[in-house]
Each structure stands twice: as structure tokens, then as C-alpha cells.
């Protein structure tokens, strides 16, 4: 188990943790910074202050009520659909790759990709907003074209770690995939793992 302080592409701090359960299994978790109480209070105060000024000029109390409701609904939606706490990549050489996203509200989103669908795991480059970033992605095999790629599945989409963090994950994933491949070939030739 190894943990370290890394940064995302914008310079914000993120924490990275890797658990190596065996030579065929690794778990990598990137944790985004928690939602700070200060920023929540500042945003809420700002919105409510603006609403109070609107109420002062319109003398319509429904403005205040609507603002309170909208703030609470907005906060709930943000925590449930957008604010991500943890992103986990679990790779088991003989089984597959599982991507888990844990939202601030506690909602969990899990995607599983069978190992025989995985063509490769690579670090790619992309233009994102006004930045050029590196991102880790899983390439899925195209059944109709052995050399083609059916789909590109990005990993750690929310945290967007920098290259040093991605390289650590990439290297370990490649070792696991290679180990799995060697064992599978041994099994095919010898008949035992």
C-alpha cells in the first residue's frame, strides 16, 4: 500500500493511493479534495444576499423562498451528480477492470470491463478546455477489426491527475496485464496455472 500527495492538471492537491493485493491484482484510488465548508458558506451567503437585495427592491417574499429552495435543490443535485470524492481503478489480470466513482452524496457508479475486451491501457493526450492534458484510458477491442479500437474509456475523469500519478498507475497496470498474459499462455501450453 502506497499513498502520496499529487496534484491535478490545474495544480489542486489530490491524494493517490495504490493497494497491490497480488501480482495479478491492483487497486488505485484518487481522492479529490473535500468540499470546504468555507466555500459552501461563501456561495450560499452570496446568493442569499443577492436574493435579499432583490426582495428589498421588489418587496416580494416569494423571491426569498424560491432562492432558499433553489439553493438547497442545487446543492443536493451538485453533491449527488457532480461532486466526486473518490475514483477507483481495480484491475485483476485474469478477470477484468472495474472503475468505481463515489459521489459526495454517497452514490456509487460502477463500470466493469471484462479482461478479454481490453486491448490495452495507455496514457493519451487531449485538449481539454484551455489545456493540453494527459489522461489514462482503456482501449477496448473491436471484434470486427483485430487492429482497431472499439471505444476509449477514460479513467480518473474528474480528478484529472498529472502525468507522474498516471505513470505510476500505467506502469503497474502494464505489469499486471503482462503477468496475466504470461500466465494465460503457460496455462494454454501446460494446462495448469
Amino acid at each position: 500500500m502506497a499513498a502520496g500527495g499529487f496534484r491535478d492538471v490545474s495544480g489542486g492537491s489530490i491524494s493517490f493511493e495504490q493497494r497491490l493485493h497480488s501480482s495479478l491484482c491492483g487497486e488505485f484510488t484518487v481522492t479529490s479534495p473535500k468540499l470546504s465548508l468555507r466555500s459552501v458558506l461563501a456561495a450560499t451567503s452570496g446568493v442569499w444576499l443577492a436574493a435579499y437585495f432583490a426582495f428589498y427592491y421588489t418587496q416580494n417574499s416569494s423571491v426569498l423562498s424560491a432562492t432558499i429552495i433553489l439553493t438547497l435543490v442545487g446543492m443536493t443535485v451538485y453533491l449527488h451528480l457532480f461532486k466526486i470524492d473518490h475514483e477507483t481503478l481495480l484491475i485483476i489480470g485474469s478477470v477484468g477492470v472495474q472503475l468505481t466513482t463515489l459521489y459526495a452524496s454517497g452514490r456509487e457508479n460502477v463500470t466493469f470491463i471484462e479482461i478479454n475486451k481490453v486491448k490495452d491501457i495507455v496514457i493519451n493526450e487531449a485538449i481539454y478546455m484551455q489545456k493540453v492534458i494527459y489522461y489514462l484510458c482503456i482501449l477496448l477491442k473491436d471484434p470486427s477489426n483485430p487492429r482497431g479500437v472499439l471505444e476509449v474509456v477514460p479513467v480518473f475523469q474528474s480528478a484529472k491527475p498529472r502525468l507522474d500519478c498516471l505513470t505510476a498507475v500505467y506502469r503497474r497496470c502494464q505489469q499486471i496485464l503482462l503477468e496475466a498474459k504470461i500466465r494465460y499462455e503457460q496455462f494454454e501450453t501446460n494446462g495448469n496455472l
Partner: peptide, 18 residues
Amino acid sequence: ESFSTIKKHGKTPRNNCK
């Protein structure tokens, strides 16, 4: 540098990314 090509070269992944 990837698991699909390392076997041919007989080496493990290095620091540089594919």
C-alpha cells in the same frame, strides 16, 4: 511500451509512456 508489445521485445515497462 505496452503489454501487447513488451513480450516481443522481452523487457518490462520503463518510465516513458507509450
